[in-house]
Nucleic acid binder design. Sequence first.
DNA 1: GGCAACTATGTGCGTGGGCACGTTATTCCG
DNA 2: CGGAATAACGTGCCCACGCACATAGTTGCC
Lengths: 150, 150
Amino acid sequence: MTERKQRPGLAAWAAFVMAHAAAVRRIEQDLEAERGLPLAWYDVLLELNAAPERRLRMQDLSDRVVLSRSRVSRVVDAMAAHGLVGREPDPTDRRASFAVLTGSGRRALRESAPVYLRGIDEHFTRHLTREEIRVVQQAMDKIRTAGKNP
Amino acid sequence: MTERKQRPGLAAWAAFVMAHAAAVRRIEQDLEAERGLPLAWYDVLLELNAAPERRLRMQDLSDRVVLSRSRVSRVVDAMAAHGLVGREPDPTDRRASFAVLTGSGRRALRESAPVYLRGIDEHFTRHLTREEIRVVQQAMDKIRTAGKNP
DNA sequence: GGCAACTATGTGCGTGGGCACGTTATTCCG
DNA sequence: CGGAATAACGTGCCCACGCACATAGTTGCC
């Protein structure tokens, strides 16, 4: 049905995939080189810090971070082993489990944030005009939320 | 240094990452469900088909596909085991090794292409206007080619 | 109250992916 | 020409990731 029209879309898709691979790797390498923090860990710290009481149930955490629920469980374990987060049971639902940010975790977040923000700027934002940023964000939001709650 | 200005850039970055994760997974699942073809395999078929004489050296192949060289080596092995590609030595350089598209590989490509194109359309292009597509591609190209040959 | 359906989580396992290294071959000087 | 630097591979190894399943707990309904 659609064949002529999606040619430009295809080129855009290819560029999209390659740009993502390049930017993510560059940012992650900066972060890991300068702070020894995996990108996934940083994301968890960030979301927990933004959450009320700096705590989040596993399910909610995996909704906010780009990770599967099972992966989140293991990441939180590893971070807990390093003292960046703690695990607490939910008193109102004994199935559930909170991940809570520790003082050490907040510190790690504060120390890593500059590196992370600089990475995003250097490898992403810097190369775009304001208008491009606006359009890209708008487009990405539409793609992301497509085919969600039916 | 930059702190106010990159706030919108940060939101755009987050949307970018999430949109990529969502779209890639959706497309890959469609492809694998209907054709049993991993996305990486499809990419290799595509690049080989577009190459002169439908052959490419490992190095060149990994430059075109979003995979490390070592990964490409294994992917080509697996595809060769399934008869989709062949391995041939380069007569002019005995270190090098060509991956060549077989008839079976071309057939697999032809059969998978519709599913793949439909996936890109459904999960990516369809949600964007022409103008958005144009801007996104332009932006992605700039990001991708940033910090390449110094 | 008690059983069925549902939900939140953790874990075994297979897959995909890249880095670092070793091997073989080519090129570049001297 | 001969050895040193360089290049193109393939492979061992380890990690990230998600799926499917098992488990424990909750809710709904009669």
